[in-house]
Write a protein that binds this DNA or RNA. Structure first.
Length: 436
DNA sequence: GGTGCCGGGCT
DNA sequence: AGCCCGGCACC
């Protein structure tokens, strides 16, 4: 909340009005003590928040990191500002008999809910409104950036193992439950639930704690109530028991049956599949709800990346990129490159260059034998085309590749500098420094 | 002929 | 595993 302060003034964006109205709703709901009425108010909040991000999306220019921040912050702040501005209104409510402390907490919670809910539809709207890859990517970062504000970090939301990457996405919705602090990402799921209806799915519901900086997700309503009661509301008062419903949200995850090949055939490029695909590159679970996460996952990976470079919808060969990186040095059994998904130039060239950029450029560093890398070699490494992304079968196949324009150590360094060749070349093996 | 590299042998 | 080389395919 403190971070929202400076933004309050600037929160009068295009979406500010809607958010403000949502804030009013949220404020009212916060003061309301009837659960049923609460739900009704929350529904209204959701309705408003569904509209608002679209507006905002349409008007906010997508820029780089500054863009995300500047967008996400207003989203957050708008709700908070709107809510705070409505405190007097709510205070005037005839049934505001709570203690000041309780009211304050309600305000916080209302702001939290509004903020999170207003952010959620952003996930889906970008692919729909802006089919461009940059749009889809940017929106992801943008909204997830907003999520960071009220939650603990960006990368720790999801606890699946990136190391267990498999080219084929495996359906595992249960991983949602395992994450200790999803935070707003669950709202993202919720947003996905609102708009992204997938064809066939089995419904599965989880319950997320809306308490600030908690975000605990449980699979049973009883459990989440107990969690809220014990962890947040404290023992006892019937009031707190009644408010349990307000401090958690039910999230129905539609577990879509795993498609063997999540290809672009089912959906148009630039929509959910991009996220799914790029997500698949990260070993993501596949699921209608999780596709929303997918849209975020790359952010966490690419958050450290400078600029607009981020996974793009074209990342269909991403899995194979991993494969290549891990099989690239099989001959000498070098330590596999820690793939930190560095989608440099990904948006421009698709996925295949990525492995070359990350894998090969890192190769000299990973190799046990240290040597200086010439400029020409660096250029080769960076610009080498990989018409066919290497697949695991590549190491098995013994067919001879055409030489083409491949530059090998012999060509690069010449026979006179044989000591600079890669080991494989010196051994008359397949060159590992400049693999095709 | 030069090159890339598979297959195999040697240490 | 590291090293070396014969031999083959490709250019």
């Amino acid at each position: 909340m403190a971070a929202m302060g400076p933004e309050n003034g600037a929160g009068s964006g295009p979406g500010g009005t809607a958010a403000h109205r949502a804030g009013r709703q949220g404020g009212a709901s916060a003061a309301t003590h009837s659960n049923g009425e609460l739900r009704g108010q929350q529904t209204l909040v959701q309705t408003h928040s569904c509209v608002q991000p679209d507006k905002a999306l349409g008007h906010h220019p997508r820029t780089k990191a500054a863009g995300w921040g500047s967008f996400a912050a207003p989203l957050q702040s708008v709700g908070a500002a709107a809510h705070l501005s409505n405190v007097p209104t709510r205070a005037e409510a005839p049934y505001s008999f709570r203690s000041a402390e309780s009211v304050e907490m309600d305000e916080i919670m209302a702001a939290m809910v509004l903020t999170s809910l207003s952010c959620s539809p952003v996930v889906q709207s970008p692919p729909q409104t802006e089919p461009g890859p940059a749009g889809s990517c940017s929106s992801v970062d943008m909204e997830s950036g907003g999520g960071e504000l009220s939650d603990s970090g960006s990368s720790g939301y999801w606890s699946w193992d990136h190391g267990s990457v498999s080219p084929a996405p495996s359906p595992s919705v249960t991983e949602v439950d395992s994450s200790p602090d999803e935070g707003l990402h669950m709202e993202l799921e919720q947003g996905g639930e609102l708009t992204a209806k997938k064809p066939k799915s089995s419904l599965r519901c989880v319950y997320r704690c809306l308490w600030p900086s908690c975000g605990k997700v449980l699979t049973s309503s009883v459990g989440i109530k107990r969690h809220i009661r014990v962890m947040h509301l404290g023992t006892g008062s019937d009031q707190s028991q009644r408010e349990e419903d307000f401090y958690y949200t039910k999230i129905c995850c539609e577990t879509m049956e795993a498609a063997p090949a999540p290809g672009p055939a089912q959906q148009t490029p630039g929509q959910a599949p991009p996220g799914l695909l790029s997500w698949a590159s990260c070993g993501s679970p596949s699921g209608s709800e999780l596709q929303v996460h997918v849209a975020h996952r790359p952010r966490s990976n690419s958050s450290s990346l400078p600029g607009p470079s981020r996974p793009c919808p074209l990342s269909q060969s991403a899995p194979s990129s991993f494969w290549q990186i891990h099989t690239e040095h099989l001959y000498q059994a070098c330590s596999p490159v820690q793939v930190s998904v560095a989608p440099k130039n990904v948006c421009n060239q698709g996925w295949t260059p990525t492995p070359s950029a990350s894998g090969h450029s890192n190769t000299p560093m990973v190799k046990p034998r240290c040597r200086s890398v010439s400029v020409g070699e660096q250029w080769l490494q960076q610009n080498r085309l990989q018409p066919m992304s290497a697949s695991p079968s590549r190491t098995h196949c013994s067919f001879r590749k055409g030489r083409g324009e491949a530059k090998k150590c012999r060509k690069v360094y010449g026979v006179e500098r044989k000591d600079q060749w890669c080991t494989a070349c010196r051994w008359k093996k397949a060159c590992q420094r400049f693999p095709d």
